[in-house]
Design a protein around this nucleic acid. Structure first.
Lengths: 354, 354
DNA sequence: CAAAGAATTGGGACCGTTCCCATGAAAAAA
DNA sequence: TTTTTTCATGGGAACGGTCCCAATTCTTTG
């Protein structure tokens, strides 16, 4: 069952030269005679020599590999961030390994240890909704492995990060609901453990305040991002004596699950209840009616995070974020208005006749 | 910029014992005095010792890590297969690293080399649509690294694989269209490089034949899975003198893109044209009308592939598939009928009044 | 109490590569 | 031609673990 790999020593023996020379030839060191280099390259190719990155990383103390850890990837958000990261990292000559936590804190800790034990040169992270303890992140920092966060950033850690203007985006989304005449605007907020939850909620509250609408605590619920919970909460909202006439949901899957409840009740969207989501998942454009939502520049988020990480890794003197403010990049979002808040215009409406 | 990690030698020095003893204590070797073990464990914990997997894998010749390579992950298919793989592998004590190829052959080759150079113990693969050369796969086999394929399996390689009954599923899907009275059934097939394309197409052809419907070549087009192409081809179909009254699409994104074209033309689904997709992506249930499609047991595919790989890795004597038939597991699919082929029944219909 | 056996520990080879230093050969300068 | 410099190569330490074997200590047993 043991795999057999060719080593530089095999090559050296065959050519009757030293492994140092083989190593030099293979890595492109200048001091190798053209003749020798050619012989080595040819033999290596014909033997299908495959360098041992374990030995290499082990001896060189850097692996030219970065890790990216995401809490889940069933929505399109994280996958498309990852694609952005890969673009930049591939161009910079780094390998990327992906870890997925399934929203489990335990997996997060073990994936972090996996990446550290493989001595990756840096890590891009978005933490799970369960994460309340950040020791595994500070451990990486103490070990000198640069970290860059995106989307879900631990609030009391000073780390480089890429975020969007959650507060303003939420404010704008809720204001949009107000401007189309809604007064009883409900909010399904995410788990308390995520910054985004707090920022978006604050945007919601401040938009109400600006327009003189009293905040009704009965219309705001936090939950932990499972579809079943959304449905229970949404039913509860609809059964209130004076049910909401609009909903601002923390993200698109939430909004879509809520839509199902509304439709099952026989209510009309947006006439009876207008709905806004967040992130512009692929599915937001597919549901019926189309979901008004806040588009995030996903692949730009990924590219920006990757570039930040490159800078951290390339820094001659490691940045010490216990004494220095960590950089933050805030990207902007865009509200995409669809039929879940503004009904189709007659002219735009798809004709049912041939 | 160099990361500083604690080693077993640091621990040994502090406790004034040999590194062998530290290693034994840490790995749970029986022959260590309880007192010593405790001291080692405590010091290791307090120093936040992190074992160096590079050194370990390097010296032990196995890394307890497997790789999984997928062509893309913007649909829900691959992510949920991955989750299945992770379930099984985590339980078996293996780490999983994920690589994503963005449907690029080049990335596939370089990811394969990455995984091999990191000496993973096994790899689960679904190849890209560009892949026509399989040398990078046979290389892994020659190195003794077990491979298990799923979904997209190279036809002329004898490798363990997990597939679904593509042929029967396609046959059944097309038969469904025939049974609801459709005669001019178009087929948008995938790229020639994928087995699935051929199997599903054959199912399509044979279903037509069984029901005495002559195959009209004008109604079948192969394309390379980009949304733009789908739209062009679908427009072409609709502009034929006698346009199709049904469409069987190679997958759900294709079906959904086609639906958009149909709707933009002002045609009704399913009255004017019935549509069937493949895979039951999350989005299939969201589009309007709901898409009839073939559900694949994604997480079971992942779990099965993982178990096959475990068996390969655990085999005392490596299976030599140049002389022995490789195992195949075929899982079954299920046709999910939605409104894109059968209109909502009155009773089932969502009531629009309160 | 001596001898044998078991339990615990230490010593050091090994894994594949890089890289520094030494050596030898060839080329350039004196 | 001799000396110096440059180029090409070889030798061997280092990286952080595991693991086998030898050495030591502690128990048993005759």
């Amino acid at each position: 069952m043991k795999a057999k790999y060719i080593t530089i020593i095999d090559i050296a023996r065959q050519l009757n030269i030293s492994k140092s020379t083989v190593s030099r030839a293979l890595t492109g060191h200048p001091n190798v005679k053209e003749h020798t280099r050619k012989a080595v390259m040819e033999l290596a190719a014909s033997m299908e020599y495959q360098r041992n990155s374990l030995a290499l990383g082990f001896s060189k103390h850097n692996t030219n590999t970065i890790g990216i850890m995401v809490p889940e990837f069933m929505s399109t958000y994280f996958p498309s961030v990852i694609v952005g990261v890969q673009d930049v990292m591939q161009a910079a000559g780094y390998n990327v390994v992906i870890c997925q936590q399934n929203e489990s804190y335990e997996s997060e800790v073990s994936n972090m240890k996996l990446l550290l034990s493989y001595r990756v040169d840096g890590i891009i992270v978005s933490h799970t909704k369960e994460t309340r303890n950040f020791d595994h992140f500070t451990l990486a920092q103490r070990r000198g492995v640069p970290l860059v966060f995106f989307n879900r950033v631990p609030e009391d850690m000073n780390v480089p990060n890429v975020i969007v203007n959650d507060y303003e985006a939420a404010f704008q989304a809720v204001e949009h609901l107000i401007l189309i005449g809604r007064k009883r605007i409900a909010h399904l907020a995410g788990p308390e453990s995520l910054v985004n939850t707090r920022l978006r909620r604050q945007g919601y509250l401040d938009a109400l305040k600006k327009h003189g609408i009293a905040h009704n605590p009965d219309l705001m619920l936090s939950y932990d991002l499972t579809t079943e919970k959304v449905k229970i909460y949404m039913k509860h909202f609809l059964e209130l004596d004076t049910p909401p006439d609009a909903l601002f949901a923390i993200n698109d899957p939430t909004a879509i699950a809520a839509m199902e409840v509304v439709k099952a009740k026989g209510l009309r969207i947006p006439e009876d209840i207008a709905i806004v989501g967040f992130s512009n998942d692929f599915s937001a454009g597919l549901v019926h009616p189309g979901l008004t939502t806040v588009a995030q520049p996903t692949s730009e988020i990924g590219r920006t995070a990757a570039e930040m990480l490159l800078q951290e890794m390339r820094a001659k003197v490691k940045n010490d974020y216990t004494i220095k403010k960590a950089p933050t990049v805030q990207l902007s979002t865009r509200l995409i208005v669809r039929e879940s808040t503004v009904p189709e215009e007659k002219g735009k409406k798809v004709m049912k006749s041939k």
